[in-house]
Design a protein around this nucleic acid. Structure first.
Length: 348
DNA sequence: AAGCCGGGGGA
DNA sequence: TCCCCAGGCTT
């Protein structure tokens, strides 16, 4: 079995992505200006890119490093300030772990990102693939990665049966990833196989005629690209319904409360919720403060998660007094879930 | 091994 | 509507 690395690296030199905001400037063989690897940028990008596409991440990344230019500034920041810049990206445990890791590195690693694989793996939010990616891209260390792109490419190259959610399939893919990862130019190979997956070996309509490794690809040889990767076994998602109570005072400020760290939208700020039932809503609203009045029921919002659907009915409630903490809508300093942001945007 | 954790874009 | 994306953590 031949590694795909040589033709892949050749292809990468000409067709790979070399100008993403977090990338070190590509320095071989075309040469050009040198921009050294910034491990803070690479780490941050790898976390943002977990389950999130490059096109979505770019703006968040550029914004984030404006607010937190260095690892030290991130460590010193308030968690709410970090979450405010993360809001809308989803998977908020990533932001909490990012913040925790910055503090761990400051306190236990003298402010320097560790270079030892096991130490990197110990950091919260960094698993085997992300640890490998960070060390390969930053220091050219020889580690394999196995992200969504690599899984798809290798599943096709070797016609790997089964889905990644099965341990046996995942183990097989890790073995193949280790096998193909070269000792030389591991950094470029790591970027190259992701670029191949993102630009040619796509989920649908792969552009095999332009692929540098078609000779070594079993799926191409057998014309089975459409069968690999094998589809994920699907299951039905339940639907839940809630009401969100939008308390607004006479100053136009709204009431928000911090959600628990565990569960959906962990550590973000959101409206008070109750079951979407007219009686319940009226009871809860009455209990909130003596002078509340239900203004109107807003249009319901559909929101989908990985594992269930959520119907949200926003209820606009006016309050004249300020017995609780309200927030000015403009320039929120805390993170709010995407549907909450949308509801706020639609207020008069 | 399976569930939990977001939001968006493509088909 | 369904799928999946530069996955990791918890149970």
């Amino acid at each position: 079995m031949n590694s795909i690395s040589k033709p892949l690296l050749q292809w990468f030199d000409q067709f790979g992505r070399h100008s993403l905001p977090w990338q070190a400037t590509y320095s071989s063989p075309r040469g050009g200006q040198s921009k050294p690897a910034n491990i803070y940028h690479i780490w941050l990008s790898e976390i943002m890119l977990q389950q999130t596409q490059v096109s979505t991440v770019i703006d968040y990344f550029n914004n984030f490093i404006q607010y937190f230019p260095t690892l030290k500034s991130l460590a010193k920041a308030e968690e709410d300030a970090v979450l405010a810049q993360w809001a809308g990206l989803g998977y908020y445990a990533r932001a909490r772990n990012l913040h925790k890791t910055a503090q761990i590195i400051t306190e236990k690693h003298q402010g320097r990102f560790p270079k030892e694989f096991e130490q990197v793996l110990d950091l919260p939010g960094i698993g085997r693939s992300t640890a490998g990616a960070i060390l390969a891209l930053s220091f050219n260390q020889n580690h394999a990665i196995l992200d969504g792109n690599v899984k798809r490419v290798l599943a096709r190259v070797h016609q790997v049966k089964g889905h990644y959610s099965q341990a046996e399939t995942l183990n097989k893919l890790w073995q193949l990833a280790e096998f193909h990862t070269p000792n030389n130019r591991t950094n470029h190979y790591t970027q190259a196989i992701m670029d191949l997956g993102a630009t040619l070996c796509k989920r649908s309509k792969p552009e095999c005629e332009r692929c540098p490794i078609q000779q070594g690809c079993q799926a191409y040889q057998n014309n089975t690209q459409g069968k690999y990767p094998n589809p994920k076994p699907k299951k039905n998602k339940p639907t839940r319904s809630i009401a969100m109570l939008v308390y607004r005072n006479t100053l136009g400020e709204i009431y928000l409360e911090k959600r628990p760290e565990k569960g959906i939208w962990g550590s973000l700020w959101s409206f008070k919720e109750c079951t979407d039932d007219r009686q319940t809503i009226e009871q809860v609203v009455k209990k909130f403060s003596p002078d509340t009045r239900i203004e109107r029921y807003l249009a319901p919002i559909k929101h989908s998660f990985t594992h269930y659907h959520l119907n949200i009915r926003p209820v606009l409630v006016t309050c004249s007094t300020n017995v609780k903490k309200f927030y000015s809508i403009a320039n929120l300093k805390v993170g709010v879930p995407a549907p909450v942001k949308n509801i706020i945007a639609q207020l008069d």
